[in-house]
Design a protein around this nucleic acid. Sequence first.
DNA 1: GTTCTGTCTATTGTAGATAAAAGACAAACG
DNA 2: CGTTTGTCTTTTATCTACAATAGACAGAAC
Lengths: 292, 292
Amino acid sequence: MAKQNTVFKDAFNRCLALLSETSALPSEPELGQTLGVSRTTVRAILTRCEKLKLIDWDKRSKVVLRSPEPSDYFPTEETDSLAERIERSFMRRILAGGAEPGMQINELELAREIGTGTTSVREFLIRFSRFGLIEKRPNSHWVLKGFTRDFALELTEVREMFELRSAARFAALPENDPAWHELKTIEAEHRQILADIDNRYREFSELDERFHLLVHRSSSNRFIVDFYDVIAIVFHYHYQWNKANARERNARALEEHLAYIAALQSRDLKQVEQACRRHLKSARETLLQSIP
Amino acid sequence: MAKQNTVFKDAFNRCLALLSETSALPSEPELGQTLGVSRTTVRAILTRCEKLKLIDWDKRSKVVLRSPEPSDYFPTEETDSLAERIERSFMRRILAGGAEPGMQINELELAREIGTGTTSVREFLIRFSRFGLIEKRPNSHWVLKGFTRDFALELTEVREMFELRSAARFAALPENDPAWHELKTIEAEHRQILADIDNRYREFSELDERFHLLVHRSSSNRFIVDFYDVIAIVFHYHYQWNKANARERNARALEEHLAYIAALQSRDLKQVEQACRRHLKSARETLLQSIP
DNA sequence: GTTCTGTCTATTGTAGATAAAAGACAAACG
DNA sequence: CGTTTGTCTTTTATCTACAATAGACAGAAC
């Protein structure tokens, strides 16, 4: 087992969806473009489609023979990349399950638990270390620094610095910048979710990420944008394992976002700063409440 | 060749220095403590010392037989860890030698050039990616974003935000905080170097790093402190390959540091901000001048 | 009874191998 | 002539193996 073929499996599944909507597939390069994979993978997909009698493939002609059935798809567990699986396992361990700060992290043990080789775990830990939750002792183990109160305070301190700056930049964006249009779209989605909050409050998490990323992007600063990864991952898992009062919390955040968006649209720097601060303050409090 | 034994070689060299100053070595745990290595490595070192007839070793007694000679030491090239060697090779390529932004980085080629396996290069690139100079295309190559003007501007923008905040924190540190004493020491070294600037201006680079790190540390924020790694590495290599006007540049920076230090000691926030801004501004200009 | 040493085990760092995926090039097609 | 396909090469992602290093434990020495 060298490389996992998750790219193939995932692209194959997405191709099936495409296939159910047309009577013939496009050229290999075009298909590769659509699915975001190379021609090599496209050809592997086509080969499998042919074998399953989903299409009749002869050079340029790729005629659809039948609609795909559920059994044609690869199971979703097999389409996640190894990195995603490792991240999920790891985050569950440290955020959900009683992981004490100071605890040692063992590459071999983690690898065995997840069912992968040590290399992948190691690379994950290296990538993950920039989130400030773990630290390496060279030639020795990793140390879990833990999702502590200090961590949350340090994270939000930088977040506030960055977001205030980004928000001010945003407000100064020229009239014709596409970000304004994107903001309008996001605003509309806020209103839609709020209108049906009881059923749709779970959709907030994803919208939250899109909104703040849009704001951070206008900083045009790679360090600020990259830092948003840290915030996003923390809030992502935090939302996932901490569902107490989710409805009220999200409703409140949506309202704050709308005020924040209105402030941005007013282009009044004072107002922007005020609305931004208010929202960040309550986001910080929410996060802190979930930490013992 | 699995692991390199650079830890052993480096610790051995440092042990020789120790050895030339005493007539007998301490216990294994104590030696390990001093050299910062495990007992396993200490015992390997002692074994080699014995073999070279540098000491007579029998259990607790470790009598020095003769002073180490230059030929006893391992050559310095062999004591650098693989990671350090990779970093140097890589930085030379991208900072010193015409590396165009957008260029592809090939793991295999880099590994061959440096003479290591791909695993180490790969891990280096992952670690290095947080510096914002390269970016990964999954399942494909890395892209060099380049040490461009934009990079320098984005870097210094964040640096200024962080350092202003840290400096303000520093000024508010309680009287008995050890940082004040450390600051005094650093101040004295500044004066010593300035007094003999023609001969010692090269020592500025290291002092600069120590000073700014001391300031950043008072933020008590891991993200701010960690970010200083990015600044440090950029300035480190920048100083190393860009020696035009080094003497004047460093003399000026030393003066600015002294003003900055005085401002910190005054604990007057206005003054601190002013001195800090002035120094950061000129640091930014220096950096920008070296970029075409 | 604390500290040290001898011995042993577990884990990390690195190389090398291999399947998956990307990508290059020329011939074939429209 | 610009795409598309067939074929081939190169590169990445991942596993496994193994030496270096860290670390544990019991008995020896002070």
